[in-house]
Amino acid sequence: MTLPQRLMSAAAALGVATGLLAGPVSATAADADTAAVTFRIQVPKRLSVKKTDKYDKYCRMDVWVWGAKGSTVAYSNVDLIDPHGHIEPVISYRKVLPGYQVGWGVGCPAKPADTGKYTARVIAYNRSGKKLATRQESWYEKFDTAIGSFNAAPEPVRKGRTLTVSGRLFRLNDRATGYTSYSGKTMRIYFRPKGTKTWKYMGSAKTAKDGRFRKGFKASRDGTWRAYFPGTSHCDKQVSRDDYVDVK
């Protein structure tokens, strides 16, 4: 399903259509007696898609926008901008009155091309059609990642010898086929000495074509190792399991 179709389907389920909703949010939605323009936009904080997610639980999220308010505001235009910077004209709203509510239903992206940064933009106009002010809010729709086969070895290790941290990074390919190797990404390696609560950054390693990574360190003291992937605009961040190593 294409992006416009996906969002239109969800919007229809919410009972909204392209244009203006039936009425104001409340009886107190009149303009304040001020020249200032105020905005209200409500977007999801984040949307991370896993293969095992159930659509009803994780993928039915709403984006709500209210017409800008102010003594000089006559109406607002509201647009949805996709990760490629394109405005979706089919599901835009035109001439939304001050305080009136419009919105879209947001579903899980079906493929990597649908992931990334989405933006809801509001442009306020006066009665003459002059642009007064613009406000926008964004959210990210990302695919899940996973770190497998994480290990710090040998265990135990002699002090001064090389301890190797390794693992494999995966990302969701699509919800039907599951996960695939994630190459060319930087993994950050951290160490927490025994008896402390603070993680220390030790170095980084880049994933190979099969998603595998490895990095050697000089063993100095007992402690716990972990790997961290900071994520991208399309794939979510991830932390490996912890692996404790004795140093003899």
Rank of each mutant, 00 (worst) to 15 (best):
A22Y: 12
S183V: 06
A176K: 14
K111N: 13
T162S: 14
T18C: 09
T72W: 01
R212S: 15
R158D: 11
K237C: 03
D242N: 11
F143N: 05
K237L: 04
K185R: 11
V78H: 03
R135D: 11
V102F: 10
G216A: 12
Y58K: 15
I41A: 03
R175W: 09
G148R: 07
R221I: 01
I91V: 08
A12F: 15
P193C: 02
P154S: 02
K131Q: 14
G211M: 03
D53C: 09
Q101D: 05
A29C: 03
D243E: 00
K142Q: 15
V25M: 10
G105C: 11
S181A: 15
Y190P: 09
W66T: 06
Y179F: 12
K50W: 07
G103E: 13
K237H: 08
G203H: 04
G160R: 03
D243K: 05
G160W: 07
D144H: 08
R192A: 00
E141L: 12
G85S: 05
A176F: 03
K206W: 01
V78W: 02
S181C: 02
A32W: 09
V96A: 00
A10I: 01
A22T: 08
R171A: 10
M8P: 00
L21Q: 15
G148N: 13
L163W: 04
A146S: 10
G223A: 04
M61S: 13
P89N: 08
T196S: 06
R192I: 00
R135I: 08
V245E: 09
P109A: 14
R188N: 13
A219C: 02
R127K: 12
R94D: 13
K197T: 15
M1R: 14
K130R: 10
T18N: 15
Q136F: 07
V96P: 08
K45R: 13
H86A: 12
S48D: 15
G99P: 09
S166P: 00
T119A: 12
T186A: 05
I91Q: 08
A219W: 07
E137N: 10
A227T: 04
Y75P: 02
P156A: 01
G216R: 04
K209F: 03
A124R: 01
R94M: 13
R168D: 02
Q101E: 13
R158S: 10
I81P: 04
S76I: 01
W199C: 07
L97M: 13
T224Y: 06
T224K: 05
I81L: 06
D82S: 14
L14I: 07
F170S: 12
E88D: 13
K206C: 00
M202F: 06
Q101G: 05
F217I: 06
K131R: 13
P4V: 10
K51N: 10
D144E: 14
Y140K: 12
K117T: 14
T134L: 08
D144I: 00
V43L: 05
E155V: 06
R226E: 14
S166Y: 02
T207Q: 03
A120D: 06
T164M: 06
L163M: 12
E137K: 15
A153P: 01
